[in-house]
Amino acid sequence: MPEKLSIIVVEQDRERALMIVDSLMEAGDNDIQVISEVSSLARRISERNPDIVLVDITNPSRDMIEELTLATAPLDRPVAMFVDQSEDSLTKAAIEAGVSAYVVDDLRPERIRPIVTAAIARYNMFRRMRDELAETRRALEERKVIDRAKGLLMKARGISEDEAYGLLRKAAMDQGRKISEVAQSLVLAADLLS
């Protein structure tokens, strides 16, 4: 039985941190700690001397971890992004999912792989949730603008809601633009004219 790995997860959101820890538990019996405070991140990490650090790629504080890639004292353990040449696809998958894994130099790839794989799955789920949320928000915004544009047309030309929508759709088709874009132009023009 190999020794436990010490893993640090850098994550400010408590919910997300808990979910990541859960999925890593399933990947093996390891010692997992979460750091949620990003000030002096490099010092906080080096004090705990971990084998693996997992951090969200979109976290701006990630650059602080780069300091750890320079071993400045003889006893420091330099870390590197997990790049196993034979497993290039795994690194790519991690980048796509939005997680970066830093590992100490002498760790064998077969020990890292299950952890990185588990992290990728979890981060992929976060990314899907985020994309879906953004998509829902965008759809809602478009809906609002189209409703306003319809209202403007109904008032200005004394037509029904269906006719107003028909006009917007026709204008969009004629110009090869999206209905929401035409609606946006109309609303903007109306704002300027009022």
Binding site: I57, T58, I95
Partner: peptide, 15 residues
């Protein structure tokens, strides 16, 4: 990009 390391990694890994 959110950080310099992400710029470097996106470039190195072909994103």
């Amino acid at each position: 990009a959110p950080s310099w390391s992400s710029v470097r990694d996106m470039l190195a890994f072909g994103r």
